[in-house]
Structure formats: C-alpha cells, structure tokens
Simulated assay, not measured.
Amino acid sequence: MTRTAGQADTFRAVADSSRRTLLEALAEGPKTFQQLHALLPLTKSAVSQHVSILLAAGLISVVVAPDRRRTYALVPEPLQEIDDWVDQYRGFWTRYLDGLGEAMRRHRASRPDTKSGRRP
C-alpha cells in the first residue's frame, strides 16, 4: 500500500519524539503555546517549528483569542491514516505470535521436567 502525500506528512510529523510529546499533551485537552513550551527542553523557536509542522500536517488546530493568545488542539482524524497503515500488519503479528506461543507450548510439553513443575 503506497502512502499519499498527506499520509507522508502525517508520518513525518509523528516521527519526531518532541512532536509526539506535544500530541500526547494535546490529547488531554487544548493547550497554550506556553504550556506546550513547558513540556520540552527546547527554545521557543524550536517548539514553534514543531508546532508549525503539526499544523501543516493537519494534526493540530489553533484558535486565536481576541487577546492574541493562541490555543492549540489535537485534530485526531489524520492519525487514522497511521492506524490504517499499521492495520495491514496486525494479522501478520497475530499469526506470528500465535505460532510462537504454540511452539513454546509444544517445547514445554516435550520437556519431562516441565510436566512435574520442577526445573532442572
């Protein structure tokens, strides 16, 4: 499955741990820039760049109050693109882990010490 340009922006935006920290905070509710800045050990300029990337990717929105204070909020819909992409691999991991679990059960059952509960 090939990703669209919009999906690529979403993937790039969440690839950075600082931006993920901002998204996690915004998932709890809207925040001011000052609140977002307080979360990261970065300059205001660096946080502003991260916020700009999240805005461009459509992952956050901004409301400017009459006093010019900006409040940022999470826009969760683009994250669905990531979930859809990861979903392709859920079946693989389920089959893989089920197979691994079955192999471990067979291995334990073949060991005589395991049946008695004793370990060598």
Rank of each mutant, 00 (worst) to 15 (best):
V47G: 00
D98A: 10
L79Y: 01
M1G: 11
P120L: 03
T21A: 12
G99S: 12
H50V: 06
G101R: 10
D9P: 04
A27P: 00
S17P: 12
T71D: 07
T71S: 13
M104W: 06
A38Y: 03
A109Y: 11
L100C: 02
Q34R: 15
A103I: 10
W93D: 14
Y72V: 00
P66Q: 07
P78N: 05
Q35D: 03
V63L: 15
R105A: 05
V63N: 01
A25N: 09
Q35T: 08
R95F: 06
P76F: 00
A15V: 01
T32G: 10
Y96A: 08
T2F: 05
G117T: 01
S48E: 02
Y89S: 10
T71V: 11
I60S: 03
P41Q: 09
V86W: 09
A57Q: 05
L40D: 04
K31A: 15
Y89N: 02
P66T: 08
G58M: 00
S48N: 09
D84L: 10
L59W: 02
Q34V: 14
K31W: 09
R105S: 06
A8T: 13
P30F: 02
R3F: 12
R108Y: 13
I53C: 04
R69H: 02
Q80I: 11
A15N: 09
M104K: 11
A56M: 04
R111S: 05
S116L: 15
S48G: 12
R90W: 09
I60R: 07
R70N: 01
G91S: 12
G101M: 13
R111F: 08
R70T: 03
A15C: 07
A15D: 15
Y72L: 01
P76L: 01
V62P: 02
G29T: 11
T10D: 03
A38M: 11
G29K: 02
Q7K: 04
A13M: 05
S17L: 13
L97P: 07
P41M: 13
Y96M: 08
E24Y: 15
G58K: 00
L55K: 10
Y96W: 02
S110V: 07
A73E: 12
T32E: 06
A13K: 02
D83M: 04
D98E: 06
I53Q: 13
R111K: 15
E81K: 13
A5W: 13
L79E: 02
W85E: 15
R68Q: 15
P76N: 00
K31N: 11
R3D: 15
F92E: 05
T32W: 00
L74R: 00
R3P: 04
Q7Y: 01
A13F: 04
D113G: 04
H50P: 01
D113C: 02
R90A: 10
A25C: 08
V14T: 09
F33M: 14
I60A: 05
L59F: 02
H37M: 07
L74P: 00
D67P: 01
A73I: 04
K44P: 00
T4N: 06
S110F: 03
L97Y: 07
L39A: 10
G91W: 10
A25W: 04
L26D: 00
Q49M: 09
T2Y: 08
A65M: 07
L97T: 06
R111P: 03
D84R: 14
Y72I: 02
E24K: 15
L55Q: 14
